[in-house]
Design a protein around this nucleic acid. Sequence first.
DNA 1: TTGAAAGCGCTAACAT
DNA 2: ATGTTAGCGCTTTCAA
Lengths: 337, 337
Amino acid sequence: MINSGPVRLVDVAQAAQVSVATVSRVLNGHHVDATLSARVRQAVADLDYRPNAIARNLRRRDTQVWAVVITDVTNPFFTSLVRGIEDVAQESGYSVLLGNSDESATKQEHYLRVAEAERVAGVVLTPAESQASVSRLSAVGIPVVTVDRPLGADQEHSLADSIMTDSVSGAAEATTHLLNHGWSRPACIAGPSRTITAQDRARGYQQAVEAAGLPARVAWSEFTTPGGHDATRQLLQSDNPPDALVLGNSSIALGALAAISSGGLVVGRDIGVIGFDDAPWAPLVTPPLTVVSQPAYELGADAARLLLDRIQHTAPDDPVRIQRTTTLIERGSCRRE
Amino acid sequence: MINSGPVRLVDVAQAAQVSVATVSRVLNGHHVDATLSARVRQAVADLDYRPNAIARNLRRRDTQVWAVVITDVTNPFFTSLVRGIEDVAQESGYSVLLGNSDESATKQEHYLRVAEAERVAGVVLTPAESQASVSRLSAVGIPVVTVDRPLGADQEHSLADSIMTDSVSGAAEATTHLLNHGWSRPACIAGPSRTITAQDRARGYQQAVEAAGLPARVAWSEFTTPGGHDATRQLLQSDNPPDALVLGNSSIALGALAAISSGGLVVGRDIGVIGFDDAPWAPLVTPPLTVVSQPAYELGADAARLLLDRIQHTAPDDPVRIQRTTTLIERGSCRRE
DNA sequence: TTGAAAGCGCTAACAT
DNA sequence: ATGTTAGCGCTTTCAA
């Protein structure tokens, strides 16, 4: 049968011989006489009615969608994190609009603009730059939770809750672990210096080497495999190459391991290695990669739960700051033959 | 200053001393007198106006959002694919609502329902089951492009375009490659038997071994690391264990490699291995993993471009079927000492 | 070209 | 408890 476009609420009302308000009430679970309610449900089924969420959102002035903006979809840390967010979102009836900023401030702002235009219910953000136009969102009443990294600017700081891992102590623990295995000239490839996470990891490393009376050597690179590869090559080809590496994330680790092997070095014999963030492949390289692991899924779930509290106004007035800790997973890449 | 909620079009109109229609025209690039236009832009800037996309969508009866529903966010194949989609989407002014069905028909239907309710402009789908309620979407005029797998049911078949890789020839090539290196009892861990991709990969493998006059041995498992691990363990512990493995995807490969190593076997000496789908870690295991690689990013971009054509009604009436081919990347895991 | 006004499909006052 | 109706913020006829 040829129909004039999608079925609307009026069509259902007409078929059920009731008013649109009654249909709306039935659909929203308000109390309605059983007879009418049954007629409505029948009509809904007969006509195969699907509510138009856009109209509902406009009228109710809110949405069932969250925006999640992360810096790298291909990084297992973020995919686990997103899964943590998604699971909580789905439980609570929200859907997730995922944006990948690729560490670019431009793309990030694009997604935040879309989030604002679409009047999403909330935003989970990994700030690409320490600055982010979060104040706009807050101004319109859209709560923002940052995850993995805080907002840098002080005034923005107070606008968003943040969920993080203690990178400083994680990196310190990683470095100490290397030193305990007899490596004496560790360097650190931290990540891009503009990110707080990289800064923190560099700081933790620094604290550990300095506590051991050793000189610190920090290299910065993008959080990418090519970035890790180049930084490693440069370190290894330098005058006084390090005998161990603390690597800022798993993409960097991938590049570093490739550079080590193409430089003819062998992990465990010539060099000790420890990574930040666990990855599914970490147990499979030779020797298996020892890492300092972040509870990625839990960080995501924390962020989602906090966002939910903000949306329901059940969170405290002051910004909440949750910090989780890392876990060292020993696998062998720090051992010395 | 305390404001009564977000700035609306009327507020801009009032500030610029023009009608709302004029503001709308300026914002949508219609022709408007330069003087008025300037006043409007000034007011927009002054008030920091942000259009409400929900209202616009309701009135225009269309959206700037695509839904992308895939089966596994943690699989690098899909993350590349999504990136291909995202890049094309962004170029064309669309945003992507990403859903992760986790191979569950229930979750998939949830996301499709959301997509319909939100009246998205189009859908890219990796069907979790060969069946999917795509007809509804088509009925409302939302175009659907499937990627990686087709829709199974014949009537649904005609409802969606599909972008795929030729898994049959890819798996056949992989298997032949193993045989050419002297392995003589290859088995195949294809994936879940309900998926077309796994069926195709099993078929390609079968064709190749049978062409060589050898018996076929297909094991089914989920497209997961634990799935690959278990299937491998069972094969290796069987009476007549295979001397080589063709692995259905990279998650399975991860599990298989772990099972091989914990079984005390060494790839290249005791067993030959080839994987489906490249992964960032594939060059780093020992020996580096030879794979049959799919052009994931391009598949995503193809799907996105096709969706765009459908939305703009510039695609042919009949369903389009694009099939790309795999590339064998030799790395060493098929060599025999 | 510009403005006034209708209406997208729904929910929530308000009235009964 | 149910119906009537006024919007939500925008775009787009229709008149001027």
